[in-house]
Structures are given as structure tokens and as C-alpha cells.
Amino acid sequence: MTEHITSVRTYLLVFIALMILTAVTVLVAFQDFGAWNDVVALTIAVIKASLVVLFFMHIYHSTRLSKLVVVSGLVWLVILIGLTLSDYLSRGLVGLASS
């Protein structure tokens, strides 16, 4: 694989997008969307992180293997948080017959 060199223009565009998203997430934080506040804030964070991974970290132009490594890291994080929550969010849902 020959190295792909990202142009300075792309870097600057990504930087500007990240700055705009930061401003948006701060402004949106003061609005009340009820339970959706968490979703909005995290969605913006995920978009920002994806921009950094894809362009600053060159994953967009990288091998399938590198993409797989990134995805597996995220999948395992989801396993860790998800299965732990399967305990915490279901406590008391199903009771013991005796109690």
C-alpha cells in the first residue's frame, strides 16, 4: 500500500467542521429536549470523533485491516458497557419467587 497524503485543504475543512460542531453542541446543551439532550450531545460527539478518525487519523484512506481494528475496538467497548448495563437496567425487573 502506498501512503496516501491528505491535502491541507481537507485538514482545514475538517478542522472548521469540528469547530462548528463544538459551537453547536454548546448552544444546544442549554435547550431542553427532555431525554433527547443526551442523544443530541452524544450524536454530535460521535460525528466529531468520526471526522477525527476518518481524516486526521487517515482511516478513510486506510486498509481494511485498520478499519477492522478500529471497529473491533468500538464493538468491544459496546460489549463492556452494554452487558454491564444489562445488569443495572434490569435490577428488580424480575424478582425471586420467594421475595
Binding site: W76, I79, L83, S86, D87, Y88, S90, R91, G92, L93, V94, G95, L96
Partner: peptide, 18 residues
Amino acid sequence: GFLVWGHHLFVSSQSILA
């Protein structure tokens, strides 16, 4: 192997469903 760790917590006040 990463999906089974809760079997160490059967009697540690883990939820029944988990």
C-alpha cells in the same frame, strides 16, 4: 469469552435477567 463474565456474579446481587 467476552460475553460470559456475569456467571461469576450469579450470587452477587446481579439482576436475575442478566
